[in-house]
Design a protein around this nucleic acid. Structure first.
Lengths: 338, 338
DNA sequence: CTGAAAGCGCTTACAG
DNA sequence: CTGAAAGCGCTTACAG
């Protein structure tokens, strides 16, 4: 039904190989021939068949994006990574197969071993991510957005959460705060292997100790009333706290309302530092100074590296674990300790 | 490198066609042969090559999911549709190509005319959606989630927003409310062709008039401080209003905080009815009675219909525009008019 | 119950 | 500067 390269060749009075080369530019074609071919293509509305091309070249121009939607997590946070990954992929001529199967291992195996994708982007990587094992058997390269215990053989990109914590603590220490509350992601995120929880927390604890700062860490929640209750508990345990660090998407999104309920204003009554992206802050109109998580930058770097590796596995060199440097954006929610 | 059907055939001592038929079950294979083939498959770790299969069968088992991320819209709302579409597709053996190009027409043309997908799911459909034109030229079937002026030739699924409005008005009328504020989606959504804005609003206005209810509709915003300002303006314009209908995701997500700021409690000071999904309400812990938008149901119905049409274009019959019946979930945020 | 062969629509050495 | 032919890895009539 649809025109094939043979139809174009016939209409232009050339061979199929000539049409193919005209399309790919892989060899010189006379102007006259090229024009005849182009006219035939336009007239017939020809587009190369992706399956046939994939079979002939062993390349699909599709990347797999693997993500998990967890019932008990704050879904909007994941979305920030999807768009930059998709955009960067398209800039390099790749489409995106979005895989959300709950059978994580099966999904990776199925899509890689059938050669549906040229490369793999893993989102929401956990410390002992079960997807890494099937990925090692795969012949396609993979990139992780996140941090795994044994990322040997894979490129990994993540925020430097240790440095993020030090930035937050330094900022508050400079302002004279000596009693700080840290709200972390929920405990089940730790159980699942969300390493950013303890990487941030441990670094914060250590840095605070160095300043002689009293820091207490509490698990936050991702749903009400848990969000509110965990904050209540944290404030009750540290009545003299003058600053709050929130490393928890659902909690920071709910914080304006919570502080209002308690009649607290930042920075006058309480200094607040969040950990979230510019996009997230904008979506939820968050008025807080924050350590930026830069999902757009991570997504872009990850996809670029993956595509480099697809294009030239040898050239791309040894796999790297790259922790990108966070920065702090001051939105005026911190001030001198009371 | 990877095993092909020829390798399996050789190892099992049968022909390639026999392996193929054993895989598809399209003809009888003796138990003994089948076992030898299965053993060879297991040993070699064989998985059929998706590109080769697509070329031979003219079927990719991939659906295209086309969505637009608008800078000025509340992104989390879109996510609710993605998961049910993905889940339903997988239940029927289809994977999902997620297409987010800003060049909407080009993206549809590119992916359909190269036969990357067997069918198309259009999300975030506008009244004069530019994607419909390239879709008419495509040979694959398509389904719209949303409502277009001329959906001729396509299956469409959307909530019955007219009925949704009537449900909300009836509910409040029964409770004796006679002065109601309606916050609609932002004005730019109307400009873009988001028909749900006026379908809901017009039906609400008409229904209210029938009861002799004073209803004033205001455009809400999707970002602060616009969200707050539009609510302020609405309350200023209707100081005697006893009820609020919110048909705006960003506004309803911000409402708990806003009402708190103003010292208003629902249902005592103000009855509140939202228009949002169960999932959305859960993510944002919204304590409001709401007309459910059922994105999971819409996504599932849409994909099922699309797959039916792919499987048997003739059997599936004439394209339908199906508006699903909303229902109201009482969460106790409405009460008798003061 | 099974096999040999053609065909799906491309790309790319090989030849000239 | 261009063509004829092989090959990518499947599926499916056609034959027996």
């Amino acid at each position: 039904m649809a025109a094939t390269i043979g139809d174009v060749a016939r209409a232009a009075g050339v061979s199929r190989s000539t049409v193919s080369y005209a399309l790919s530019g892989k060899r010189m074609i006379s102007d006259e021939t090229r024009e005849r071919i182009q006219a035939a293509i336009d007239e017939l509305g020809f587009t190369p068949n992706a399956g046939a091309r994939a079979l002939a070249t062993a390349q699909t121009n599709v990347l797999g994006l693997y993500l998990q939607f967890q019932e008990d997590e704050f879904a909007p946070a994941m979305l920030q990574y999807v768009l930059p990954v998709s955009t960067t992929a398209r800039e390099h001529g790749f489409d995106l197969l979005m895989v959300t199967d709950t059978d994580l291992v099966g999904a990776v195996t199925r899509t890689t071993s059938s050669y549906m994708v040229d490369g793999v982007v893993l989102l929401d990587v956990t410390y002992d991510d079960v997807r890494l094992e099937p990925l090692r058997r795969a012949s396609q390269p993979a990139v992780l957005i996140g941090y795994a215990r044994d990322a040997e053989g894979f490129d990994s990109f993540d925020l430097d959460f240790g440095e993020a914590a030090r930035l937050a603590i330094d900022h508050l220490a400079d302002l004279g705060h000596r009693d700080i509350i840290l709200m972390t992601p929920p405990e089940h995120v730790v159980a699942r292997g969300g390493s950013y929880v303890w990487r941030f927390r441990d670094a914060a604890v250590e840095r605070a100790a160095r300043y002689g700062i009293h820091l207490t860490a509490h698990y936050g929640d991702s749903r009400q009333p848990g969000i509110r209750e965990s904050l209540d508990a944290a404030f009750a345990a540290s009545p003299a706290a003058t600053a709050l660090i929130v490393h928890n998407d659902a909690t920071i999104a709910a914080l304006p309302s919570y502080l209002n309920d308690r009649g607290l204003r930042s920075p006058d009554d309480l200094s607040v530092v969040g950990v979230f992206s510019r996009e997230f802050g904008q979506t939820f109109s968050l008025p807080y100074t924050a350590v930026e998580t830069s999902p757009d930058r991570l997504g872009q770097l990850a996809v670029q590296q993956l595509i480099r590796r697809i294009a030239d596995p040898a050239e791309a060199g040894v796999p790297v674990v790259r922790l990108i440097e966070p920065s702090l954006t001051d939105r005026g929610s911190t001030g001198p300790a009371a």
